[in-house]
Amino acid sequence: MFASVSDCAEYCALIEYYAAEGAVLEARRGRLRNALVHGNPASFAIVESVREHAEFLSGTALNLGLESYVEGAVPAVALAKRTDEFTAMQAGQDAAGYWRARLTAEPATSANPS
């Protein structure tokens, strides 16, 4: 993972791997949901295999929904928004380059303001 930070190709491959894993988990979560809704049996192992993914999705959605409420924004827009890092990665920039540029652009803060 750390090697991928300064190599865009490795970074993209890592993102693709996680996206593929997410698609598998999302499909499994959908099948499990359908089984439970329609009264079909579901094993504890299957429930456990998607539990962390489902908690991540619901926690993220709740956080974004609350932020949009506080900011007075439309929740659907907040849920569809992508991070600047994600957008930069989609444009071919690696994570190290993105963060270097971002940190360089931020104003320096003084540890001892007078």
Rank of each mutant, 00 (worst) to 15 (best):
F44M: 11
F44K: 03
F44P: 07
A45M: 01
A45L: 09
I46D: 01
I46H: 00
I46C: 00
S49N: 01
S49P: 01
S49Y: 03
V50Q: 00
V50E: 00
V50D: 00
V50F: 00
R51G: 07
R51A: 11
H53Q: 05
A54C: 07
E55N: 11
E55I: 03
L57C: 11
L57E: 08
S58R: 10
S58I: 06
S58C: 14
G59D: 01
T60I: 04
T60W: 00
T60H: 02
A61N: 06
A61G: 00
A61S: 05
A61Y: 03
L62N: 04
N63C: 09
N63F: 15
N63Y: 15
L64E: 13
G65Y: 03
G65W: 05
L66H: 06
L66K: 08
S68E: 04
Y69H: 15
V70R: 07
V70C: 06
E71D: 10
E71R: 13
E71L: 14
E71T: 06
G72M: 00
G72T: 03
G72C: 15
G72A: 03
A73D: 10
A73K: 06
V74H: 08
V74E: 13
V74N: 13
P75R: 09
P75M: 06
A76D: 14
A76Q: 08
A76L: 04
A76H: 07
A76R: 02
A78W: 12
A78H: 10
L79C: 13
A80P: 09
K81L: 10
K81A: 15
K81F: 11
R82I: 06
R82Y: 05
T83G: 13
T83I: 06
T83E: 12
T83V: 02
D84S: 15
D84M: 15
E85W: 06
E85N: 12
E85I: 15
